[in-house]
Design a protein around this nucleic acid. Structure first.
Length: 926
RNA sequence: GCGAGUGUGACUGAGAGGCCAAAAGUGACCGACUCAAGAUCGGUUCUCGCAGGAGUUCGCAGGUUCGAAUCCUGCCACUCGCACCA
């Protein structure tokens, strides 16, 4: 017997399942699970496979347990990425074309249509559906939609009107990364370089020079009191520019940047850096100071002019020292203003000298700057004459003072540069106006979410703290975009709703998605959705009865039971959706639980399409078969752990399935006899059923597989060993087949569907009742007897291995009853330290003298070493060693291939017989 | 840097104070079957041991305890997140 052709088996099952998983409300209890829908911009790889297969295993499990299970799927196509992709393909970008043509194997004629972004998502969502089906996912495809379907857009509009009415949407200005060449904001994935760059908020400190202002950009405005000079780079050309009507002197780069940050900028004249040197400037908070030359000043950094605080900034200190070493500017000395524990009067000087810095080009300067800055920030205090505030407060208050009274303003700049757009152009910070924000910072909204979070079931439990932290940390979210696919903001249609924000409550949409498709978008007014989802009002809609029916469907399915997603979405999507649910739905429709996944690796390295390190799910299925892929993905790690796809391991999974197939097929023709081995096998099976069930209830798919497959498999090994000679398998084996096929069905449904049919099972295994453990079939005494045999056999083996003789006979000497008395005295003793004394109080024992003492000591060790349950059970007295070994004599002889005798230790004169202990018979090999 | 999590034998990965030299799977090695290979089945796989035992291991270094892979402290390494993006 061998596994039939995989393809054939899969095709048959797929035909049988075609409309099988399309649940409507029923009288039984429901189980509704959802997974974050995919963004179909590329082919599915095995990592995606797990994301959808694990929930499918759970769905199949609950379905077999009699629940009405809903597992829907849709496609998230809103956003900008596909627009970029299509543009790149249209432009003939080689990297993009290589990825799509060679790695994702998109046919040429399809690829040509990819110049339309919608074609990309259309193509891949179809591919996703095809591959998901091939994986055996029990998805209700009637409910499929995409996020640009007009009906869905109506739903999003409705959602946003509610958010707006609830006061959760606000307008404001917002700094973003911006590419002037593309004339667009850029996200991480649009960047060639600098994707880690953060936007920092600098204060521009305005020094007066003639009729102009010279702005110096700083993160530490409070140090103004210690300024001794400014720095400009003598090799740089500066410009005089009219900024909002006032002449400023800044670097040429800075002038361009300021224009993007809410300023009217007109360049009037160029000023070589050299002609600024030795000029004198002034600021009310520090008086008059000169401008000095320094090559470390970067014109591309903020304003291109730096104020110098040599007492507290290592760069400033060393630049000044370098100049003074040449005998220049000797009159300038550092001015201290902050006291920091661990440093002297001039922390910058201390740090530079401690580190042994030679000059301003030393590479250690960056780290040193960081060190001094953080020391001063965390524990520095300003001198009394400057207000005596801690640095962390003074920073804010001095900045506020300067803004209010001394013309200071804010300038945004990246912390690391350069930042380069995919188009090759330089990226700048730009302030966008009229930006809409979701007010996640709202404390009332936050507390609504955290209250609910406390009641949710989170798997694994460790993620709870991360969720809690995220709720606390979330700030306002810029929720509208200018470019991309998506729904327009209903009250401000120049804006599109941002993609993470339009995918927060669609789990509710699924519940009636297949009905909504039949409505024209115009019919789906906010009043209709209010009625459907919130049970509010009574819209004058024709066909009210249908609406009522849909509302009942929604109420049947909602809230969802579990949402599945990878852990990288905790800090945005998974938390966002809680906010949105809280804002819109009633308390009884709030989400019940979430399961957070780990990430996927391929041969130990992170999977990444752009690096080409992916294994396409479709290839995996055609190479190994869908069940193999499923079983591997489910069994290699628990869902929340990272998993690693390795072809060689997948290969052996395939063999396991073949073995499983053979064993189950064999079981159908097993005999009717019931031996002890059969009773034992059945007894063990009940526990495997129970443990598999518990594991799946807890989403432990790997654990479930351990029990449902490997544990039963290894029981069968022992079972075969224990069967009387010549017997092929008895009644238990026969009974096992159907049960086993059902236990494995959630994981390898294709194989099990066929096995179920072959076993004479009715209907589909996908809907067959999940096995239930029968406590009446559990026989602990029998299990213990087998355990004892196994342990004894191991001891025999271990002895034979070290013995170098060829044995001719084996004698097992069972411990005499007085030793059992000692054993149970030891096992039940409250205090093991005094048990010896207690036992020796007994006259009978005292008569045995040393022997009794020795036995007691050995029993103490033994009791300690045996599993407690094992010991406890032995004490009930139903396990008769002599009987067990005598009954198993044939078996032992077969195993050892020598004659075996079983005697009471008292009957043997062999010196070794005296070593017999309860549960550890003396073994004499001769 | 900050926050969350993880580190177990060749690899994947159980174990959460004495049942632990540590499950299961993989790989490797040895046997059986075979003309042979593959598949399958059985065995071995930290070190030592001519009697079921002993010794050394669970990221590193300390500590608590009669006893630590398991508890505490510090360090190191890895993963994820740190936002306008799916």
């Amino acid at each position: 017997m061998s596994l039939p052709d995989m393809r054939q088996l899969e095709d048959a099952a797929l035909r049988a399942w075609e409309h099988a998983f399309e649940p409507d409300p029923a009288s039984r209890e429901k189980f509704y699970l959802t997974v974050a829908y995919p963004y179909p911009s590329g082919a599915m790889h095995v990592g995606h496979g797990r994301t959808y297969i694990v929930p499918d295993v759970i769905a199949r499990f609950w379905r077999m347990r009699g629940r009405q299970v809903l597992y829907p799927m849709a496609f998230h196509v809103t956003g900008a990425p596909v627009i970029g992709i299509s543009r790149r393909i249209a432009r003939g970008d080689e990297k993009a074309i290589h990825l799509y043509r060679d790695l994702y194997r998109v046919p040429q004629e399809t690829l040509e249509r990819f110049t339309d972004p919608l074609e990309i998502v259309r193509h891949f969502s179809e591919e996703y559906r095809r591959v998901m089906t091939a994986c055996g996912l029990s998805i209700d495809w009637r409910r499929r939609f995409t996020t640009v379907d007009p009906q869905y857009s109506k739903f999003i509009e409705w959602q946003w009107l509610h958010l707006q009415a609830g006061g959760h949407v606000n307008k404001g200005a917002h700094p973003v990364r911006f590419c002037p060449q593309c004339d667009n904001p850029v996200g991480d994935h649009d960047l060639l370089e600098g994707d880690k760059a953060e936007i920092l908020k600098f204060t521009l400190v305005m020094f007066e020079w003639d009729d102009a202002l010279i702005p110096t950009a700083t993160l530490r405005p409070e140090t103004i009191y210690g300024v001794t000079n400014l720095w400009v780079n003598p090799n740089v050309t500066y410009v005089k520019a009219r900024v909002d009507g006032v002449p400023w002197v800044v670097s040429r780069e800075a002038a361009e940047k300021l224009a993007l940050q809410d300023h009217e900028v007109t360049v009037i004249a160029e000023i070589p850096g050299t002609s600024l040197i030795d000029q004198v400037v002034s600021h009310p908070l520090c008086g008059t100071v000169p401008i000095l030359p320094a090559t470390f000043v970067d014109p591309a950094m903020a304003s291109g002019v730096v104020m110098s605080v040599p007492a507290h900034a290592p760069f400033d200190y060393i630049a000044l020292r370098d100049l003074q070493a040449e005998g220049r500017y000797l009159a300038i000395s550092p001015v201290a203003l902050i006291r920091v524990p661990g440093y002297g009067e001039f922390p910058a000087k201390d740090a530079v000298e401690r580190a042994g810095i030679r000059d301003q080009t030393d590479p250690a300067m960056e780290a040193l700057t960081q060190e001094v800055y953080s020391a001063e920030f965390s524990s520095g205090i300003l001198f009394e004459r400057y207000g005596g505030e801690p640095v962390r407060q003074a920073r804010e208050s001095v900045a506020a003072l300067m803004t209010e009274k001394f013309h200071s303003t804010v300038m945004y700049e990246f912390d690391t540069r350069p930042v380069v757009c995919r188009c090759g152009g330089q990226v700048f910070v730009r302030i966008l106006h009229d930006q809409w924000f979701l007010q996640y910072s709202d404390p009332a909204w936050k507390s609504q979410v955290s209250d609910h979070l406390a009641q949710m079931s989170l798997v694994p439990p460790e993620v709870r703290t991360e969720f809690e932290r995220t709720v606390g940390w979330l700030k306002d979210w810029a929720c509208t975009r200018r470019v991309g696919l998506g729904t327009r903001l209903p009250w401000d249609p120049d804006w599109l709703i941002e993609p993470l924000s339009d995918s927060t409550i669609y789990m509710a949409y699924y519940t009636i998605a297949h009905h909504l498709k039949q409505y024209s978008p115009e019919e789906l007014t906010p009043e209709v959705f209010d009625y459907l989802f919130l049970k509010k009002g009574s819209p004058a809609h024709p066909g009210k009865e249908r609406l009522d029916e849909m509302r009942r469907e929604f109420e049947y399915w909602y809230p969802y039971d579990y949402r599945f997603s990878a852990k990288d979405l905790i800090s945005n999507h998974l938390t966002f959706q809680l906010f949105h649910h809280a804002a819109i739905f009633s308390a009884r429709n709030m989400p019940r639980g979430m399961v957070v996944f780990g990430m996927g690796l391929l041969n130990g390295a992170k999977m990444s399409s752009s690096k080409g390190n992916v294994f396409l799910l479709e290839d995996a299925i055609s190479e190994f078969g869908a069940d193999t892929v499923r079983m591997f993905l489910v069994g290699s790690a628990e869902p929340w752990q990272d998993f690693d796809w390795r072809n060689e391991l997948v290969h052996s999974t395939r063999k396991q399935i073949e073995r499983f197939w053979n064993m189950v097929q064999e079981s159908f023709s097993a005999g009717e006899d019931t031996t002890d081995a059969d009773r034992w096998l059945l007894s063990r099976l009940q526990q495997h059923i129970e443990k598999t069930t518990e594991a799946l209830e807890r989403f432990q798919t790997r654990q479930a597989l351990q029990e449902a497959f490997y544990a039963i498999d290894s029981d069968l090994k022992w079972y075969r060993r224990r069967l009387p000679a010549g017997m092929q398998g008895g009644s238990a084996y026969r009974a096992l087949g159907q049960i086993w096929a059902r236990l494995m069905a959630p994981v390898i449904p294709f194989t099990c569907e066929r096995l179920w049919t072959d076993s004479g099972g009715e209907g589909l295994v996908s809907f067959a009742p999940w096995p239930v453990a029968d406590p009446g079939k559990v026989d602990p005494d029998l299990e213990m007897a087998e355990e004892l045999l196994l342990r004894t056999l191991e001891d025999i083996d271990s002895i034979r291995r070290v013995l170098q003789i060829t044995p001719s006979s084996l004698t097992l000497c069972v411990a005499p009853s007085w030793k059992m008395a000692i054993f149970s005295a030891v096992a039940t003793a409250k205090d093991r330290n005094t048990v010896l004394r207690e036992i020796m109080k007994d006259d009978q024992m005292r008569k045995r003298g040393k022997e009794a003492m020795e036995t007691t000591k050995q029993c103490i060790t033994l009791v300690h070493r045996l599993p407690p349950a094992f010991v406890e059970q032995y004490l009930n007295g139903r396990v008769k060693e002599m009987e067990i070994f005598r009954n198993a004599r044939d078996f032992l002889e077969r195993e050892c291939a020598i004659p075996v005798r079983v005697v009471d230790a008292l009957e043997s004169r062999h010196p070794r017989a005296a070593t017999a202990l309860p549960l550890k018979p003396a073994i004499i090999i001769e």
